[in-house]
Amino acid sequence: MTGLIILAAGSSSRLGTPKQNLIYKGQTLLQRAIQTGLTSVCSDNVVVILGANESAIRQEISDQLVHVVYNPDWQEGMASSIRLGAAEMIRMQPLLTSVILMLCDQPFVDPLLIYQLTEKRVESDHGIVACSYRGTLGVPVLFDASYFHQLLMLQGKEGAKKLIKAFPNDVATVAFPLGAIDIDTLDDYEVLKDK
Rank of each mutant, 00 (worst) to 15 (best):
L65R: 14
V66F: 04
H67I: 00
N71I: 07
P72I: 02
W74Q: 04
Q75D: 11
E76W: 10
E76C: 10
G77P: 05
M78H: 11
M78R: 10
A79E: 10
A79I: 07
A79P: 04
I82G: 06
R83Y: 02
L84G: 07
L84R: 08
A86F: 03
A86Q: 04
A87C: 07
A87V: 09
E88R: 13
E88Y: 04
M89T: 13
I90M: 11
M92Q: 15
Q93N: 14
L96R: 02
L96M: 07
L96D: 02
V99P: 00
V99D: 03
I100Q: 07
L101I: 14
M102P: 01
L103M: 13
L103I: 12
D105I: 11
D105E: 13
F108E: 09
D110I: 00
L112S: 12
I114P: 01
I114W: 00
Q116C: 07
Q116W: 01
Q116N: 12
Q116P: 01
S124M: 06
D125A: 12
H126R: 15
I128G: 08
I128Y: 03
A130M: 09
A130T: 10
S132W: 02
S132A: 14
R134A: 15
R134V: 12
L137M: 12
G138V: 08
V139G: 00
P140W: 02
V141F: 01
V141W: 04
D144F: 04
D144G: 02
D144L: 02
D144C: 07
A145F: 11
A145Y: 13
S146R: 13
F148H: 05
H149T: 15
H149V: 12
Q150W: 12
L151F: 05
M153A: 13
